[in-house]
Design a protein around this nucleic acid. Structure first.
Lengths: 227, 227
DNA sequence: ATCGCAAATATGTATATACATAATGGGCGA
DNA sequence: TCGCCCATTATGTATATACATATTTGCGAT
């Protein structure tokens, strides 16, 4: 009883009961601590957590109020494809379709922050779930940004090799819908122009851009999250 | 110097430098605290934060190790549409296209957890950004789950009314790509079958399912997040 | 050798205290 | 009256301490 999660639940309940309406100031930490008979640090933990979830807005001196902005935050778990496929109870396999050295298109060079003429490695991998096309991965890899020699990527996916080799790069991820190109349709086994769920991800270390991936999922793919 | 964010940065740096490789155990909190000359609580805060981000895995007694699973977590901010449009520097407007009472299709009744024959309110709203179609919102609303009378929704969007009225319901959200239906194509001004980015969201209070929304975004929409 | 129990240990949480920091808002002076 | 400065105040963080809890590990009995 009266751990910080209980305090959090109690406060959330009062918000949901419209005890405190959106925009309203709630009591300060010291008062809440006294009311619930816990230390201020415990209330702080609870309120901080609710604020991280977007329910509260906190500002020093100004106090804590129920969020008016209503920006919900959802946490997306983004696993490597193998795990995603296996989590669905299917067997993962992949085929390396292409591996060439080439200069990226200018737009991409700009986005990755590499010189326009830089030689990058272009890799194309088809991921399979129980033998059926799951997603087509089109990747540009910057060999300068990874330590040591590159494997040939027929035994291990680029993704899994990267998370072992450049473990914790930062980056950004985008989600969009696009019609299947001729090539994507052929490889994924759908009609040209079919609506595909696409994720584009760029990752970089402090020093340099490491990789850019476009992942076109076979039709029917859904990404889900709890609020 | 040596606030918890500095400790976090120092530890993240050591992970990125492969000082501790994925899967390896890192020193315990007490040792790290001694090493950095801070209290254990400070190290705990830093490690807890890194674990929330998916970089570390922690288990009592077993210690803290660099995550091997590599499930990256991205936080998505999900604003109400008005804010999303305005954040892009455009003017938001909307038109209520339909408002009827009807029984939801059986699949949806199941998903929302309402009786198969229940009368729900079906609302269709077109959202505009600078006068151009931005997204088509198809919503089922459970009148039993909201307190008081319903407005007519011509002056305020359902979404904004809901976040004022049932502020902090929980729920789940899904993202997918689908071809535009005839109706969606007509309303959004795109070709039938065009690839649309669709979000489906269900929200519920403790007591009952409140609403289910399908939001079909006009072609070109992207959702982005940082890793 | 195997099972089960107990000791050891790392993280998780709670507490009181202290000080830091960011806004607010009132008072004072021009 | 206007504008600046400082006291006030709520949150943010750091610390030492204590105890809770989940696992592991090893010891001892069968």
């Amino acid at each position: 009883m009266s751990g910080w999660e209980d305090i959090r639940a109690a406060i959330r309940a009062r918000i949901e009961a419209r005890d405190w309406v959106p925009g309203a100031l709630i009591p300060n930490e010291a008062d809440l601590a006294a009311e619930y008979g816990v230390a201020r640090a415990t209330v702080n933990r609870a309120l901080r957590d609710l604020a991280e979830g977007g329910l509260l807005e906190r500002r020093r001196r100004a106090g804590t109020r129920v969020a008016l902005a209503q920006v919900r935050r959802a946490v997306l778990a983004i696993p490597v494809i193998r795990r995603e496929v296996e989590a669905a109870g299917k067997a993962h396999a992949f085929r390396l379709l292409e591996r060439v050295e080439a200069a990226p298109p200018p737009v991409l060079a700009l986005r990755m922050g590499v010189a326009p003429g830089a030689r990058l490695l272009r890799l194309e991998t088809l991921h399979l779930a129980d033998g059926r096309a799951f997603a087509l991965e089109a990747r540009w890899l910057n060999p300068m940004a990874v330590p040591g020699p590159l494997p040939d990527f027929t035994q291990v996916t680029v993704n899994e090799w990267l998370v072992e080799t450049v473990p914790y790069a930062t980056g950004e991820i985008e989600f969009l819908a696009e019609p299947a190109s001729t090539r994507e349709a052929a490889v994924l086994g759908c009609k040209e122009g079919a609506a595909l769920f696409v994720t584009e991800r760029g990752t970089r270390t402090e020093a340099a851009s490491v990789t850019f991936v476009r992942l076109a999922h076979a039709p029917g793919y859904r990404m889900r999250s709890v609020l």
